[in-house]
Amino acid sequence: MVKRIDIDGNAINDIASFYEEINRVLMAGESWRIGQSLDAFDDLLYGGYGALQGVQSVELVWHHMDHCRNVLGNQATRAYYRDKLRSGSPYNKKLFAEKLEALEAGTGETYFDSIISILADHPSIRVINA
């Protein structure tokens, strides 16, 4: 049986609110939440807890996806990469400098693109643009 899960794209206006919405719909019933990490989002999609626990197949109905594509686009991604590059940051600066350079050259992924790529790696999840 296919489980339908709806994402309210209008509730997403930046990276932080993306995770708030993901936690709202996918972590309902759990006593903990995933942090703001693409790796954590990817791990969540493997199932085992939250709304995906015991689910074989998912239709992820993403309402107002174009709004999300915009708010998680170049500007948000640029700010995200620059934060990773700030002094004292524990992140791989070389990697994030390369990602920022590619983004500014028009060849890099936006944060939204990364989310869609992660979803595409999970064949049991079908994303529907609503």
Score class of each variant (00 low, 15 high):
M65H: 01
W32P: 06
Y49W: 12
A51N: 14
Q53V: 06
V58W: 05
L72M: 07
N23I: 12
Y46M: 10
Q36I: 10
M27L: 15
L38W: 03
F41Y: 06
E21M: 00
Y19S: 13
E20M: 07
E59I: 05
I34Q: 11
Q75W: 09
L52F: 07
Y49G: 12
R24T: 14
V58C: 03
C68W: 02
W32A: 13
R69M: 07
L38K: 15
A28Y: 06
S31T: 13
E59M: 04
R69T: 06
R33D: 13
V55S: 01
F18W: 07
H64M: 07
Q75G: 08
Q53H: 00
H67I: 08
V58N: 00
H63Y: 05
Y49K: 13
D39M: 12
N70K: 15
V61K: 01
R33V: 07
F41T: 10
A79W: 10
M27V: 07
H64Y: 03
V58F: 01
D42F: 11
C68D: 03
D43W: 03
N74F: 15
G54I: 11
Y49N: 15
S17T: 15
L72K: 02
L26C: 01
A79G: 10
V25D: 02
A28I: 05
L52E: 11
Y49T: 13
R33H: 12
Q56T: 14
G50E: 09
Q53W: 05
I34H: 04
H67R: 03
M65D: 01
N23W: 04
Y46P: 09
G29M: 14
S57Q: 13
N70Y: 14
Y46G: 11
A76I: 03
Q75D: 11
R78V: 04
L52Q: 05
A51D: 09
D66I: 02
L26H: 00
L38T: 01
S31M: 08
G50S: 12
I22C: 02
L72Y: 02
F18Q: 04
V25K: 03
G47R: 09
R33P: 06
S37Q: 12
E30F: 04
L45V: 09
V71R: 00
R78W: 04
H63T: 12
G35F: 10
L45F: 05
L26G: 03
V55M: 07
E20L: 10
E59H: 01
G50L: 12
S57V: 05
G47W: 08
D39G: 11
W62H: 09
S17C: 08
L26W: 06
E20D: 13
N23A: 06
N74Q: 13
A28L: 08
E21S: 04
G54T: 13
G50M: 14
N74G: 10
F41V: 03
R24G: 00
R24L: 12
T77N: 13
I34C: 10
I22A: 00
L26I: 14
E30D: 13
M27T: 14
Y46E: 12
L26R: 03
F18I: 13
L60A: 03
G48R: 04
Y46W: 14
N70D: 10
C68T: 15
D43V: 14
D43G: 05
G50Q: 08
G35P: 06
A28N: 08
N70W: 02
L44I: 10
E30M: 15
W62V: 15
H67G: 04
